[in-house]
Design a protein around this nucleic acid. Sequence first.
RNA 1: CGGGGCGUAGCGUAGCCUGGUAGCGCGCUUGGUUCGGGACCAAGAGGUCGGAGGUUCAAAUCCUCUCGCCCCGACCA
Length: 564
Amino acid sequence: MRWSKVFIPTLREAPADAEAPSHQFLLRAGYIRQVAAGVYAHLFLAQRSFLKINQIIREEMNRIGAQEFYLPALNPAELWKESGRWDQVDVIFKFKDRNQHDLCLGITHEEEMTNIARSELRSYRQLPQIWYQIQEKFRDEPRPKSGLLRLRQFIMKDSYSFDLDEAGLDVSYQKHVDAYHRIFERCGLRFLHVEAFSGMMGGKVSSEFTAPAEVGEDSIAVCDCGYAANFEKAQSRPAPVDDLPGDSPPEPFATPGKKTIDDLVKFTAESPARMIKTLDFFVESHPVVILLRGDHTMSETKLAMTLGTDVFRPATPEEAFALHGAHLGSLGPVGLKGVRIIADLALEGRKNLLAGANRDGEHLRNVTPSRDFQAEFADVRQVEEGDPCIQCGRPLRVTKAIELGHVFKLGRRYSEAMHATVLDEQGKEVTLVMGSYGIGVERILSAAAEQNHDKDGLFLPRPIAPFEVILTAANMDDAAVRAAAESLYDELLKHRVDALFDDRDERPGVKFKDADLVGVPFRITVGKRKIGQGLVELLERSTKQATDVKLPEVIPALRGRLGC
RNA sequence: CGGGGCGUAGCGUAGCCUGGUAGCGCGCUUGGUUCGGGACCAAGAGGUCGGAGGUUCAAAUCCUCUCGCCCCGACCA
């Protein structure tokens, strides 16, 4: 393409409402323009990138035997009511047609795909199936943000697997995990595959692929040994604590006015790791008492997992008083009757701890779990940066990351609700076992932009950059430069190099600045001084390393760098 | 949904407190000079100051309502 003929509206300054680097540069480089909050027009350069990204996705999905579909974004309400999500999910764009029928725009397509599966799949002989599409999704997000990072309309590659049993699902799931690794690898991203929570999608096992970046919304705990998990789900070994010896029974002591762990630490000079923190919650009308080590923080997500529901709330001070016979500050587990007590794993096997005495102004020492009170032990603690890795014991790091893709073992959540069954070998009706797998296409581009920019602009990975090379003719009015550039451009096209020829009648400075901005990984510069010696310049954008190359050698040199 | 900020030409902004014909830089058009890191000179085009209502002789400016956008938090398949 000749720059003089195409529309690449670069900006010298970033629009004031763009903050994230990917947002600023995609605007400045003329990739995108905003239409509304969380809604963007993809201009020429963006569309070229997306076509390349989609092609990579397609190739890798096809490679695992997935079949490409294209379902409508416009969905009748019936299916969503059947699965229960019409009322459960609040980001659905809902509206009525002229006949007052409820419709919505698809947020994802479990319902639609399951609907096809149930009406068409009859026999185990037809399994497994993997169906996918690259299609628009609509979500009425409470807070769209950061350019293409959180959109209300976005492109998703979503796929759905249908298997006869769990073993089959495991295979389909693993195929996706492998495909996703190849996709993100080929897109040139730095990424992590991490354990995750399934949230409202339903199902038990899920993991996500994330790209480390400052502006990411996910927090990821990572370790050098390869362990990586969503912060909400991450586990760690609690730092070991030496408990005091002895088997004395709990002994009350006065702690007037000491209400917090901090107060108690100052008052007793004991380590908070030797204290028990007591938190009361209610699940519907049932109280649940949560115990944690004094220096630990509870993870609401893990508690939700343990309780099997995310509908719970902290007890009011009055409710806590009714349960313990004491006010907040002196709550403890000893002597509680008929209440479910969940103790964090960090309290298992410990002895002689400090806890509230359930009498105002008093605490107990020598409290030993399982002797002085009974509790279920579960992991309800949020990890902290520096905690020993659950696998190898080295300190965990916490990093921000962009969620690129998420893979779920759904199980029978949708197939059961929508009666999607086939007959097995014995002629018995069997409910399909499903998986669902998503990739955010815009997020691949934004993550690449976040990971590959400097003060002057973008340098996208070659496979997803809108062009592979930009041919800059520094002086179009110089006959020798012009002739050399024109013939180089022809040669590049002949060699099927994806080239953008900056043939504009602009000053060299303007062209160099624009070339730096637009995210093309290589630049060939033809200038009037060097062309006299038969030389042109080959520059790698990411490092800005430039080398002078003899004119006939520049295309082989470039192709070598491009790996083709 | 809670908190904060902002809407003035394509982009960045001044003017608003203290009401009196809307200004600057970049970009754009034309002519000339220039030409390896966002040139210079000259002449131009371009704005219902987000919208509605009100106060006033007079509103970008004051008041009320409203719409939109951004950021933090909540939420997040």
